[in-house]
């Protein structure tokens, strides 16, 4: 459905007298199969939206090539536009227009007749729980409703592939969860391919069949969430000792269980490290510590999250700078 090779986008920026060239996207290769939900994950400024704008024909690639829905983005942009839906971060409807009018006009710009666009729009309104909102002004809708309206706009012409750019940014948890259900339904009920950018790990984790991680304009990983997580060596273990003097003893015991190259960190009473198969290793560790007369206040074992994956891949936490 999507195939990109060596996509590059450079922007010229100017700081004082110095002109610099920023490579916002720096040689991106991407493959998305039909019917997949792919999460495109990266921190703000990593090049997600720029890549998306190239794939949706809004931005001409500086270099490289991309085929979307079987058409070349540079030479067959009209065919690409007909085949895809795009829901941008900034919304899609005039704030003082009426929601239904906007949906109909949008469908008509795709060549649908007015009646066709109205019927399809009303179907989508009920599917996306927007009943009764047809004549409302978008500015009077709640954040979640407005995002769903944007998605309806993007789906009006029944595209085979939908791009969603940060669809849940700024929504409350309940509205987010609700939107996730709608997004997975797109694929499950209609077989639509979904390409979704996000800087939320839980979102990528909950929705995606596959995750593509971008950082500094380069793809740093592409795999299923499970595989990505299993690449991180082991589960994280956090032991809190009652007596701070005993922390080195605990650190030594934990260090014996971690892989070479992984460090054990002592932070006050807390001793942290990563060990493989913590579930089977921890009971032995506890027994050894008890025999050494070490008293623990608490123990926490955590499966790796995508944030750990991101940290391992890029050396930074995704949450930094938020």
């Amino acid at each position: 459905m999507i195939r990109a090779r060596g996509l590059v986008q450079t922007f010229k920026s100017r700081q004082g007298r110095e002109k610099t060239e920023v490579r916002a996207v720096d040689g991106v290769d991407l493959d998305v199969a039909e019917g997949e939900i792919v999460g495109f994950l990266g921190p703000n400024g990593a090049g997600k939206t720029t890549t998306l704008r190239m794939l949706t024909t809004l931005l001409r690639p500086t270099a490289g090539e991309a085929t979307v829905a079987g058409y070349d983005v540079a030479t067959q942009s009209k065919d690409v536009r007909r085949a895809i839906g795009y829901v941008s971060q900034s919304g899609a409807t005039g704030s003082v227009a009426r929601a239904g009018d906007e949906v109909i006009d949008h469908g008509m710009l795709y060549g649908m007749s007015q009646a066709e666009a109205r019927q399809r729009g009303q179907e989508l309104f009920s599917q996306f729980e927007l009943d009764g909102m047809w004549t409302r002004q978008p500015k009077t809708l709640s954040g979640g409703q407005r995002r769903r309206l944007d998605i309806v706009m993007g789906l009006i012409h029944v595209p085979r592939l939908v791009f969603l750019d940060e669809p849940t940014t700024g929504l409350d948890p309940q509205a987010r969860a609700n939107l996730w259900t709608h997004i997975s339904n797109l694929r499950d009920q209609r077989g639509t391919t979904v390409f979704i950018t996000t800087h939320y790990l839980d979102e990528a984790d909950a929705l995606s069949d596959r995750i593509i991680v971008i950082d500094h304009g380069k793809i740093v990983a592409a795999d299923t969430p499970e595989n990505l997580k299993s690449q991180v060596a082991g589960d994280s273990v956090d032991l809190e000792v009652a007596d701070i003097a005993q922390a080195p003893v605990v650190a030594k015991a934990l260090d014996a269980l971690t892989e070479d190259g992984d460090r054990v960190v002592v932070d006050g009473r807390h001793v942290r490290g990563r060990i493989r198969r913590a579930g089977t290793a921890v009971p032995g560790l506890l027994r050894d510590l008890t025999q050494a007369d070490v008293e623990l206040n608490s123990i926490e074992v955590r499966r790796p999250t995508l944030d750990d994956v991101f940290l391992a891949l890029t050396g930074r936490s995704l949450r930094e700078g938020e």
Binding site: S90, A92, T93, L109, M153
Partner: peptide
């Protein structure tokens, strides 16, 4: 104002 609402972008992704 329309650009800020995202309307211009939305129109530009259509084949119009």
């Amino acid at each position: 104002a329309e650009w800020r609402d995202g309307v211009v972008e939305a129109e530009r992704v259509t084949p119009a």
